[in-house]
Design a protein around this nucleic acid. Structure first.
Length: 422
RNA sequence: GUGGGCGUAGCUCAAUGGCAGAGCACUGGACUGUGGCUCCAGUGGUUGCGGGUUCAAUCCCCGUCGCCCACCCCA
């Protein structure tokens, strides 16, 4: 084997690709009902865009970005996530001048230079949505409902919605200070990672899995108690909307997003059927980001779905469903092969998936192939049939067989198979 | 970046310091032009790569590359 795909980067082939297509088609259908329109945005951007939005001290920016100089020496980065490019797009095209809200979705690969593991890759695919221009919590609830409908639409069950508010630029600093104060004099008892987090992202200490740290942080100030009036009201309203829609969720005060731009609402959908990387979708508000990118103050909210993780879950549900040919044409001899070629084109024009026999082979091996590729109907053309202007047909699922004049093929097809493939 | 596990046929995996195997898949035959089931045969390997120990290494040792899982972090 001369070449392999790069570490953490994988090919997606049939039959897996059919699961991906299913996810994408359901997503499009759901997004349309909620008025989210597709945008196509680049996979490379100026490096600054990600540093400014995600945060200079985050792991993503510090060590996970594919960054390189282009031929003119500009620093280019392959997008590690989609929100920052979407916001850049929104501001660049002055979309804030259009009626508010503007709601978009996009899909495609993201890139992070990480050590791969279950559910984590260096090139991974997301479907992302962003809604600009609404500060009311109703859109938070709507976006979460849309995500729920999407996941249900593709048949995904047994997922948990987790919800939190991390406050706004007014109340988050207060909370952070309260947290720092709480950890200050017992910091040396925490694990090395938490001691590092104390400086980089103290909210993350709340999420540490080390048992000693879990014990030590009991009694730490809760974010809910430090939200300002507006943020508390926003969160309460969101929660009551979700209750109204009978969407079940778990309040998780430790749900901290790693990206700097998040404000207020954060949420995550997790599954227990995955490995350590169990979030299948996640998102939140980023009310400051548009302004930071040079646009007018514009609230916004979005989420991203991890395609590989969803596909992993769906693989179990969607085990053997994949498209297969409807008709196989088996022929014996050059003349028959040419006639079969003509019939194949005719049937394809009528919308059927037709597989011919390309190379000469025994009828036995041709029918074996027809069976193995999952064809429903075999058409057999040999010397005898050519002379008589007829073909043999065989229903491979039922085992029934018969003979029909070539001009009457259509009747056999409608008796034996569906008129077209999905 | 850190830690652990694993690399043998297309796939899933055996094996022993002494001829490298099975199942599945693929091709053909039993059945001159009729699939699935059965039976038979065939194709397919520098045992990831490099070095070392040894009369002899797929096996033991060292290095290296790759994959997997976990930590960190995140979709």
């Amino acid at each position: 084997m001369a070449y392999n795909a790069l570490k953490g980067i994988q090919d997606i082939l049939p039959p897996d690709i059919h699961i991906w297509q299913k996810i994408e088609s359901v997503a499009r259908e759901v997004f349309q009902r909620y008025g989210f329109q597709e945008i196509r945005i680049p996979i490379i951007e100026s490096t600054d865009i990600f540093i400014r939005s995600i945060g200079e001290t985050t792991d993503i920016v510090e060590k996970e970005m594919y960054t390189f100089p282009d031929k003119a020496g500009r620093s280019i980065t392959m997008r590690p996530e989609g929100t920052a490019p979407a916001v850049r797009c929104y501001v660049e095209h002055h979309l804030y001048n259009l009626p508010s809200p503007q709601k978009f979705f996009y899909s495609g690969p993201m890139f992070r230079y990480e050590r791969p593991q279950k559910g984590r890759f260096r090139q991974f695919y997301q479907i992302g949505v962003e809604a600009f221009g609404v500060s009311q919590p109703s859109i938070d609830a709507e976006v979460i409902a849309m995500l729920k409908n999407l996941l249900e639409g593709i048949g995904l069950k047994e997922v948990n919605f987790e919800l939190n508010s991390i406050g706004c630029e007014k109340c988050r600093p207060d909370y952070k200070n309260a947290l720092l104060k709480f950890f200050e004099n017992r910091l040396s008892d925490f694990c090395p990672d938490c001691q590092r987090r104390y400086n980089t992202n103290p909210l993350r200490i709340l999420d540490c899995k080390v048992e000693r740290c879990i014990e030590l942080r009991k009694g730490a100030p809760a974010v809910a108690e430090h939200l300002c009036g507006n943020c508390r009201e926003h969160f309460n309203e969101l929660v009551s909307r979700l209750d109204l829609m009978k969407i079940s969720y778990t309040l998780n005060p430790n749900l901290v997003r790693g990206l700097d731009y998040y404000t207020r609402t954060t949420f995550e959908v997790t599954s227990e059927h995955l490995g350590a990387q169990k979030a299948v979708a996640a998102g939140g508000r980023y009310d400051r980001l548009v302004e930071e990118f040079g646009g007018p103050s514009t609230p916004a909210i979005g989420f991203a779905i991890g395609m590989e993780r969803i596909a992993t879950l769906l693989k179990e549900i969607w085990s053997d469903e994949h498209p297969s040919p409807k008709i196989f044409i088996a022929t014996l001899g050059k003349e028959a092969e040419i006639e079969g070629f003509r019939i194949a084109e005719d049937l394809r024009a009528k919308g059927f998936w037709v597989e011919p026999n390309y190379a000469g082979a025994s009828l036995k091996s041709q029918l074996r192939k027809a069976d193995r590729i999952g064809a429903e109907l075999a058409l057999i053309i040999g010397e005898n049939e050519l002379k008589a202007g007829k073909i043999q047909w065989k229903n491979l699922k039922k085992g029934e067989q018969g003979e029909v004049e070539i001009k009457d093929i259509q009747a056999i097809l409608t008796d034996n198979i569906q008129p077209s493939n999905p």
